[in-house]
């Protein structure tokens, strides 16, 4: 990876992470919440790749593989929860599922 400086890659990753975090905090629709989570995971993965390439180390790619595996598992569990949520409440609004208060 010549040409693109490492800072640029890291700024992109940070931006993606911030976007995902905002989506996680402010979105009501659970599909978008899950997508935001995916974006955050991928931002972290990107940071690993960029750092790994910048420092000429293989560990960055190894970590990325771990991150996608994790993301796949997370997505399957998250989607199962989403389907349950829809079954119970007939809506995808997560604010409705607030029975565990106090």
């Amino acid at each position: 990876m010549n040409g693109v400086p490492m800072e640029h890659g890291l700024v992109l990753a940070a931006t993606l992470f911030a976007l995902g975090l905002c989506g996680l905090m402010f979105r009501r629709n659970m599909i978008f919440v899950l997508m935001s989570l995916e974006i955050m995971l991928n931002a972290a993965g990107l940071a690993f790749i960029v750092a790994g390439t910048g420092w000429q180390q293989p560990q960055g790619q190894v970590m990325f593989l771990l991150v996608i595996t994790l993301a796949a598992a997370e997505a399957s569990v998250g989607l199962a929860l989403l389907i349950q949520l829809y079954h119970r409440f007939k809506t995808l609004n997560i604010d409705v599922a607030s029975r565990m208060r106090g």
Binding site: L21, I94, A97, R101
Partner: peptide, 17 residues
Amino acid sequence: LSRTQTGKLRGYAVTMV
């Protein structure tokens, strides 16, 4: 402390962040 348990997922996310 139990007041802070609103049950709203987004609230928890904000608190965590």
